[in-house]
């Protein structure tokens, strides 16, 4: 009988591949994003099977919980004409295929170096620190914040620069836009806005000329 982890692996792997195929073949872009989410989720399951529970949770939190939500957000709001979108797809086939082939070659090369690389067998047999001694999260933290601190920090800086760049590029200062000032709103008192005027019968009231100065007539 097939053991439970193996069964779970094939289940998650089949779900990942099936969902990934559906991402590019689904007619509706919203469905594509939903399939993409399923693919992320199954990949997280594969990480759990590998014993990398921290990476799995991070994948779900970052990609599924934040990135894919924004994807979905944008795709849902666009009113896309699907037929029109499909028409030009054939002309993108060569470049898309090229990217796919390059990715495939890179993956194969990675697999080969994983199998036949010089230090790989040693490193794989003895990851530092041993996984039985410390938790996944701690092991990652020890490596990331010691040996690779500069690379880690510069990756963060690149993201920050990208974020600032996107804001600068899309931000435009329009004139004539009414903005609210929260400080002014909070500092505003009822007396500034209105005043009570005692009106005599049949005489009417004189309307105060200046705001906030409701003097008696």
């Amino acid at each position: 009988m097939i053991s439970l982890p193996v069964l779970a692996f094939y289940l998650f792997a089949a779900a990942t591949i099936g969902a990934a195929v559906m991402v590019i073949s689904a007619k509706n872009p919203v469905h594509s994003v939903l399939w993409l989410i399923l693919a992320f989720f199954s990949a997280a399951g594969l990480f759990v099977l590998l014993g990398a529970e921290f990476l799995a949770m991070l994948l779900v939190i970052v990609y599924v919980g934040a990135v894919a939500v924004l994807f979905l957000f944008v795709v849902m709001m666009l009113n896309i004409n699907y037929e029109e979108l499909r028409e030009g797809a054939q002309s993108y086939l060569p470049i898309g295929g090229l990217v796919g082939v390059i990715l495939l070659i890179e993956l194969i090369m990675m697999g080969i170096s994983w199998q036949f690389g010089a230090d790989v067998t040693v490193n794989a047999a003895q990851p530092t620190p041993m996984l039985t001694e410390v938790q996944n999260t701690e092991a990652l933290g020890r490596v990331l914040y010691t040996d690779y601190i500069f690379i880690f920090q510069s990756a963060g800086l690149i993201l920050l620069v990208a974020m600032i760049g996107a804001i600068v590029l899309t931000h435009r200062t329009r004139s004539g836009v009414k903005r609210q000032s929260i400080a002014r709103q909070n500092a505003r008192r009822p007396e500034d806005a209105y005043g009570l005027v005692d009106a005599e019968v049949g005489a009417g009231a004189t309307i105060p000329t200046k705001k906030g100065q409701g003097e008696r007539p």
């Binding site: 919203v30 939903l34 989410i37 529970e53 921290f54 949770m57 991070l58 779900v60 939190i61 599924v64 919980g65 934040a66 939500v69 979905l72 957000f73 849902m76 938790q135 996944n136 999260t137």
Partner: peptide, 24 residues
């Protein structure tokens, strides 16, 4: 779980999908 807090965070961040899918 060793990553129980992250699990809670992950599941609660998934909760938005039920709502966003129903709305669409």
């Amino acid at each position: 779980l060793n990553v129980g807090v992250l699990y809670i965070l992950a599941i609660s961040s998934l909760g938005v999908y039920g709502i966003i899918m129903s709305g669409w």
